[in-house]
């Protein structure tokens, strides 16, 4: 078994043992309960929102919670003196979150199909959710670096939402000029929302291509120039050898 597989298995085992997986499942059940009462048309507007919240919010919070526990229990120290590389460690966080988000997609999609017979463009939704989860796992890790505890992670998260989500909301409420609003596609949540929604509505192809490339590039840049270089400094802060 490779180190990466071991780390991912360990991540899932801990998500389960620390009750984070259960919390995720409870939220899933709430979504399914709401889906039950919705008409097909409303569903096609509501489900992208579920996937967006899951791959943005839950992803940031889950990776933040696991990093918080690792900091609190100093287990990151032990991991860093094993043959595990920084890349393997960070990739395990990303892959775990992607699998978690895809599990949500699978369960919700199955529930929606069985309860309402509604289907959508899975071939667009799955890569979109994957990409959005990757970006937001990296954002979650970066937010965790500057968080002293879980509360300050939540504050960082709120700040992220405030800065990056509000412009899109203002645009939808026509509070922002459309000429300016065009550029909001450069905000990660806006590009994420657009990409996920493309699986449910007709979207201009250039927007899908642009959002995909933009989020992929953002992931690479975040990993290469933000998350990885700051990782050792983050570990050192926690390492009281």
């Amino acid at each position: 078994m490779t180190n990466l597989t071991t780390l991912i298995r360990g991540e899932f085992s801990r998500l389960n043992k620390y009750g984070l997986f259960k919390a995720n499942l409870v939220i899933l059940l709430v979504w399914i309960f709401l889906v039950w009462f919705m008409e097909s048309e409303a569903l096609l507007r509501f489900i992208p929102l579920i996937f967006l919240m899951d791959s943005v919010m839950m992803t940031i919070l889950l990776v933040g919670a696991t990093l918080f526990y690792e900091k609190k229990e100093h287990t990151i120290n032990s991991l860093m003196v094993t043959p595990v590389t920084e890349n393997e460690y960070l990739m395990s966080k990303i892959i775990t979150n992607v699998l978690n988000s895809l599990l949500t997609v699978f369960i919700i999609s199955l529930a929606v199909y069985l309860l309402k017979g509604v289907t959508y463009k899975y071939w667009l939704v799955i890569p979109a959710v994957t990409l959005v989860s990757v970006v937001h796992t990296l954002i979650g890790i970066r937010l965790s670096y500057s968080a002293k505890d879980f509360t300050s992670l939540l504050i960082n998260y709120m700040a992220y939402v405030f800065i990056f989500f509000l412009p899109s909301l203002f645009a939808q409420l026509n509070l922002v000029d459309q000429a300016v609003a065009r550029f909001f596609i450069l905000l990660p949540p806006e590009a994420s929302g657009l990409l996920i929604t493309s699986g449910f509505t007709v979207t201009e192809p250039w927007k899908i291509v642009f959002s995909s490339l933009y989020l992929a590039l953002l992931s690479i840049l975040l990993f290469r120039f933000v998350v990885k270089p700051q990782f050792i400094a983050y570990v050192m802060k926690e390492t009281g050898v």
Binding site: S13, R14, K17, Y18, Y69, E73, H74, T75, N77, S78, G240, V241
Partner: peptide, 10 residues
């Protein structure tokens, strides 16, 4: 390490 290090719920 000097300080206790383990996944507490495992």
């Amino acid at each position: 390490f000097e300080m206790p290090i383990s996944f507490s719920k495992l």
